[in-house]
Design a protein around this nucleic acid. Structure first.
Length: 88
DNA sequence: GTTGAGCGTT
């Protein structure tokens, strides 16, 4: 299980996000997905910490916190299964 | 501006 971070500034990069997260634990992975069809930023990201305890620390410390002019939403990430349905 | 990919029949 990773962490979901929403309401990010669209200019934020993975490195900037990782730098902040590192202050609260060991960041293993940072992912800022872009729209698969348009290639544009989506304004949210996913993070993998070393363990669940660190994830909870990040959530409690950064959820609702203002960063880069935006109030981040930090939560446990959902399983990576659902996606916008396309009519194949 | 709020839940990642790719597969390409899952």
């Amino acid at each position: 299980m990773g962490i979901y971070v929403g309401n990010l500034n669209y200019d934020v990069t993975e490195e900037e996000l990782k730098a902040v997260l590192t202050e609260y634990g060991t960041v293993q992975k940072v992912h800022l997905p872009v729209d698969r069809e348009t290639g544009r930023k989506r304004g949210f990201g996913f993070i993998d910490m070393a363990n669940e305890t660190e994830e909870e620390t990040v959530i409690s410390e950064l959820d609702g916190a203002e960063w880069m002019g935006r109030q981040m939403k930090v939560n446990k990430a959902r399983p990576r299964e659902s996606r916008p349905n396309k009519t194949w």
